[in-house]
């Protein structure tokens, strides 16, 4: 793929990329801590992943292989659009195969396949502040983070249990990173939270509109908040994928008619397609034998 020479490699100028890399280094050094950075205006709208795009632009090299997913899928319009953007301004190779990618930019999901030390997972983050629904003032949340004063969040979870019998947060489920900072995992389903814990891949988080970067270095402890008598319990639809039969992947519910018909399919399209291909190969082998 030939890149558009009218723009610097990966769109941003080198000084801007250096500024973002400095913020990333600080973020890696203080796991889970939100580092303010001079987010730039990007040619895609805020909310479409400008933070993730800037982080990707800052870490992308000419030899990288990029995968972009939205809701777990490579073919959602926003993922297509971001992949095209980097195709044009960086000319890097892109892929839909999780295993082949060196950088994966994601919105709302963590791939089902386990990631490796050779990979970087870049999250698009709408609201980096995990406490924002409880305390909207940044000056105040900054103080709370400084003092590790997270009682407010525990009280909120306790009130959930008192009212509903269980914690009613199903995505953007808050986590403690390395036992120190409360962090928003971005709006991934709580189902994905356990994958963040001690993940071999570097996890980077970019929030463009809110101008914050944070990170979870490889093999760092990430614990979803819970109570001894109410342990963390991720949810998934109690069904299997209609296409590949998976009973362990996160499922999207697809409404098929207006009479209550519905089916479940894997949200991670690469995972699902790989399983289907493997099954076909197995079947072919079986028939040949």
């Amino acid at each position: 793929m030939n890149r558009d020479e009218a723009y610097n490699f990966a769109y941003l100028d080198e000084n801007t990329k250096r500024m973002i890399r400095r913020a990333l280094l600080k973020a890696v050094a203080i796991p889970g801590h939100q580092v303010p950075f001079g987010a730039r205006e990007m040619p895609l709208p805020y909310g479409w992943g400008t933070g993730g795009i800037q982080v990707t632009a800052a870490v992308l090299g000419a030899g990288d292989v990029l995968k972009v997913i939205d809701q777990g899928a490579d073919d959602t319009t926003n993922a297509v659009s971001i992949r095209r953007f980097f195709n044009r301004v960086a000319g890097v190779e892109t892929t839909t195969h999780t295993g082949d990618a060196t950088i994966i930019q994601t919105r709302h999901r963590i791939p089902e396949a386990a990631l490796t030390e050779a990979q970087i997972l870049v999250y698009q983050v709408p609201m980096p502040e995990p406490l924002f629904r409880l305390e909207p003032r940044l000056a105040e949340t900054k103080r709370m983070h400084a003092l590790a004063d997270y009682g407010l969040m525990h009280v909120k979870l306790y009130e959930d249990i008192a009212r509903h019998g269980h914690i009613a947060t199903s995505y953007s489920y808050p986590v403690m990173v390395d036992g120190r900072y409360l962090m928003s995992p971005s709006p991934i389903p709580a189902f994905d939270n356990p994958k963040m814990d001690r993940m071999p891949a570097l996890q980077l988080f970019g929030a463009g509109r809110e101008k914050r970067i944070y990170a979870v270095p490889p093999y760092t402890e990430v614990r979803s908040l819970d109570f001894e008598d109410h342990p963390f319990r991720p949810h998934r639809a109690n069904a299997s994928c209609e296409l590949c039969g998976s009973r362990s992947s996160y499922l999207d519910e697809v409404v098929t008619d207006d009479r209550g018909g519905r089916m479940f399919v894997c949200s991670d399209t690469d995972y699902c397609e790989t399983r289907q291909e493997d099954q076909q190969t197995e079947n072919a082998k079986g028939e040949a034998a």
Binding site: G47, W48, D70, Q71, G72, T76, N78, R107, H108, R109, S170, Y171, S172, P187, I188, P189, A190, F191, H235, A237, Y250, L251, D252, E253, S267
Partner: peptide, 9 residues
């Protein structure tokens, strides 16, 4: 933009 993953949960 799609939010079906969050909506599913």
């Amino acid at each position: 933009l799609p939010h079906y993953v969050d909506f599913q949960s």
